[in-house]
Design a protein around this nucleic acid. Sequence first.
DNA 1: GACGAGGTTGACAAT
DNA 2: AATTGTCAACCTCGT
Length: 527
Amino acid sequence: MLHRTIHLFRKELRLHDNPVLLAALESSAALYPVYILDRAFLTSSMHIGALRWHFLLQSLEDLHKNLCQLGSCLLVIQGEYETVLRDHIQKWNITQVTLSAEMEPFYKEMEASIQRLGAELGFEVLSLVGHSLYDTQRILDLNGGSPPLTYKRFLHILSLLGDPEVPVRNLTAEDFQRCRAPDPDLAECYRVPLPVDLKISPESLSPWRGGETEGLQRLEQHLTDQGWVTSFTKPRTIPNSLLPSTTGLSPYFSMGCLSVRTFFYRLSNIYAQAKHHSLPPVSLQGQLLWREFFYTVASATPNFTQMAGNPICLQICWYKDAERLHKWKTAQTGFPWIDAIMTQLRQEGWIHHLARHAVACFLTRGHLWISWEEGMKVFEELLLDADYSINAGNWMWLSASAFFHQYTRIFCPVHFGKRTDPQGNYIRKYLPILKNFPSKYIYEPWTASEDEQKQAGCIIGQDYPFPMVNHKEASDHNLQLMKQVREEQHRTAQLTRDDADDPMEIKVKLDRSEENISKRKVARMTE
DNA sequence: GACGAGGTTGACAAT
DNA sequence: AATTGTCAACCTCGT
């Protein structure tokens, strides 16, 4: 008995290594490839910004083209997903809905409600993991039900599991010929919309173009240089080169235009042919495993993307400062290195990993003492590769809220960028107002004399802001704050342990210690 | 329980 | 110039 199937694309916007799409083709007499463009859902659950809309629409357009080549097409249906499904299931006599399994709570919820709909309307639901190397549940099981919280431990568990699933075979025109494709006039009716149709600005300065085709091309480009692949060590890549020093494949993995399993095995093959190659955590495969690490921890940690109620996250009373947050977000901190990064982020939707570290440290424990959740939201909106687990995980890392604890290591907004770009070419590119400053002032233009500023055609305080904080003072102050937070946390943990059998007693003591914290806070404020 | 090692990528000085 | 060591106000985990 063959199905009449809707294959619901969500993140896996590709035809290569798509296990659930293959399963759909093999079990169906008719297949409707559908993307439901649920704007309310995408905006509220993923906070996607204009550049990400562009990237998504380009990816859909590419998917449509690739489907057409195999004799099918993509139907992009706009509307609330449950309503859309309800309408079309009856209209098309659907007996099966297939979709890739995802780990984000909002995607899980979507799958659950599709399951309920299936029970009500009488269709089957098939979902398979395709977005990560492993089924994260297996990693959790092997670690005794809880996620491994260090990378080393994580690698150890993986060594017990063996290699990840191999990619499934490529789809061919024959696969699609066996299933009836949607009518051509249906395809006409459900075209991929243009940015203007969604009232998104038609222009984008991003050099990243969405889609499987583009992703595969970039992948091939990078894999041709075997020496580069085998010697890749992440910390040695340059955050402020004018062209990306890393692969720049993250947006494609994030949207599923590229399969991580495909990349993993391509790398394995290259490693196998080489005498030496770098290893995790710094190797290219190591980067894929970092992704997997955060997926695993996120899948088993409640409230992973927030501080409150998140058991692995240090509880910190961050400042609420809308004005400073806004200046950080809009590249007006007065530190050219920070502002250049934030400008590249806004214009192109991608910045180097270490550049992310620099601005994240600056916003949180380094200088502004503003919650990592605020930074995470900005990245989520602006980064093409924004990913639920990786984004939150790295923000906790950088703010020393989880995973990483050496909070005395603070990225200096003046010196850090200088090492790899002493002339400040990166700053000159993204902050043209500073283009003519002499190199010795480019990272701290406020130290130039008035004459020198006039000469450079940029008066600090007028054309470009003064630095919003004194970085020595701010970072020293924050070190004190962080020390207090940790002492406090240590004490609370102690209390909780001592009175483990007496819940009431714990509550009383905790309340008291919270009172003490706030008292001290008041004392600090009035100092 | 004390102790030491290790932790994906800090700054700075000395070689 | 590039590597190495020190400083350090780190925490967690294993022996």
